[in-house]
Amino acid sequence: MTEYKLVVVGAGGVGKSALTIQLIQNHFVDEYDPTIEDSYRKQVVIDGETCLLDILDTAGQEEYSAMRDQYMRTGEGFLCVFAINNTKSFEDIHHYREQIKRVKDSEDVPMVLVGNKCDLPSRTVDTKQAQDLARSYGIPFIETSAKTRQGVDDAFYTLVREIRKHKEKMSKDGKKKKKKSKTKCVIM
């Protein structure tokens, strides 16, 4: 069974824990209790493949930012979460993405942009803004509501699919490099 290491990042209060708990335990946590770091595991079937999701729910508070490099190193894919009623959390996505790329030393890291709290009427981040940002990053965008469960499975499952595509691409690139290195030079 394939294991996928997913990391949920975003500013404090955007609903990272609520999304994760909704996926794992099928219930909505409405009281806000700032996370330092929590880890969850769940076995699911995605596109006919049974897999184990190892999900790291991270601290959004700035005082825990020193811990970010460590979990970013171990993560295979990242859910970059903002709240649709919090423009600052949307603007912060850029910083999370840049930090992930720096730590992973790669421009090509599996990510999904997630606009959470889409059940709320007080939207300050337009869907088109988020779609445009995701398009500019070359990553999928999904709106979710941890409260109603809308888009929750889709967000995590899409990230797994992005990781699969990335692994497939990397193995193809690896095979191309191996083929090239088999060419021999004969000096007579």
Rank of each mutant, 00 (worst) to 15 (best):
Y137R: 04
R149G: 15
Y137T: 09
V152M: 13
Q131Y: 12
D126R: 04
R164M: 05
G174F: 01
H166D: 12
A134E: 00
A130W: 14
Q131W: 03
S136Y: 04
D126P: 05
D173K: 03
T148A: 02
L159K: 02
V125H: 05
D126E: 11
V186I: 00
Q131I: 10
M170N: 08
T127N: 10
F156R: 02
A134S: 04
R164P: 00
T158N: 10
G151A: 15
S145W: 10
Q150L: 04
R164A: 09
A155K: 00
V152D: 08
Y157L: 12
R161G: 09
T127I: 11
K167R: 11
H166P: 03
K169C: 12
K182I: 02
Y137S: 06
V186S: 15
C185G: 15
L159I: 13
T127E: 13
K178A: 12
K177P: 10
T183R: 06
R135C: 05
Y137N: 08
V152W: 14
K165S: 07
G138C: 00
V125E: 14
R135L: 07
F156W: 07
R135S: 06
Q150A: 11
K182L: 02
I139P: 00
V152T: 08
G138W: 01
T158A: 07
D126K: 04
S136T: 03
T127K: 09
E162Q: 10
K172I: 10
V125W: 06
E143G: 00
K169V: 15
K180G: 08
D132Q: 08
E162A: 08
L133Q: 05
A155D: 00
I139S: 06
M188E: 15
K178Y: 03
R135Q: 11
K169L: 09
G151S: 03
V125D: 14
A130K: 04
A130N: 08
I187W: 10
K128A: 13
K178F: 05
K172P: 06
I142W: 01
F156D: 00
E162K: 05
V152G: 07
T183V: 04
V125F: 11
K175M: 13
D153V: 14
I139W: 01
C185M: 02
T183F: 00
R135H: 06
R164G: 12
R149C: 15
I142V: 01
K176T: 12
S136D: 04
K165C: 06
D126C: 08
G138Y: 01
K165N: 09
D153S: 13
Y137F: 15
K169Y: 01
S145C: 11
V160P: 00
T183I: 01
D154I: 09
D154Q: 13
R149E: 13
T148G: 07
R135Y: 01
E162C: 09
D132T: 07
Y137C: 12
K176I: 02
E143C: 04
D153I: 14
A155N: 02
A134L: 02
V125S: 06
S136G: 10
K167D: 12
K175S: 08
M188P: 15
S136F: 09
V125A: 07
I187V: 15
Y137M: 15
D132S: 09
V160G: 05
T158Y: 12
F156G: 04
M188F: 01
D132H: 05
K178V: 11
F156A: 06
T127H: 09
R161W: 02
K175C: 05
K182W: 04
K128S: 13
V160H: 13
D153A: 13
R161L: 01
L159V: 08
D126M: 08
I139E: 01
D154V: 07
M170W: 02
V160C: 03
D154L: 10
T158R: 07
Y157R: 12
K169F: 02
M170D: 07
K178P: 09
Y157K: 08
T144S: 06
A146S: 11
F156H: 00
K177W: 07
V152F: 14
S136H: 06
R164S: 12
D126N: 14
A155S: 04
K128W: 08
L159M: 03
L133S: 08
Y137A: 08
A134W: 08
D173V: 05
I142A: 01
Q129I: 15
K167W: 03
H166T: 06
G151V: 05
K172G: 14
V152H: 09
Q131C: 06
K184I: 00
V152Y: 12
R149M: 14
E162N: 03
F156V: 15
R164T: 00
K182F: 00
H166E: 06
K176L: 10
A146G: 09
F141R: 01
Q129Y: 05
A130M: 12
K165F: 02
V152K: 08
L133H: 02
I139C: 05
R135K: 05
G151E: 09
K176C: 12
A155R: 00
A130G: 10
D154M: 09
V160Q: 03
K184W: 00
S136Q: 09
F156E: 01
A155F: 01
K184V: 00
D154W: 05
K169D: 10
I187G: 15
G151I: 07
V186T: 15
K128H: 12
K175E: 06
R164Y: 01
I187Y: 14
V152R: 04
D173G: 05
Q129P: 11
R164I: 09
G174V: 04
T144H: 00
K167P: 02
Y157V: 14
Y157Q: 15
A134C: 05
E162Y: 02
R135P: 05
V125Y: 13
R164L: 12
K178E: 15
M188D: 15
K178M: 15
G174I: 01
D153G: 12
Y137K: 07
E162D: 04
I139G: 01
A155E: 01
K167H: 11
Q150R: 11
A155V: 10
V160L: 06
L159T: 01
V160F: 08
K180V: 04
D154H: 09
M188Y: 06
S181E: 15
G174W: 01
K147E: 15
F156P: 00
K169S: 05
I139A: 07
S181F: 02
L133I: 09
A130H: 08
L159S: 01
R135A: 15
C185E: 15
D154S: 11
M188V: 08
K180S: 15
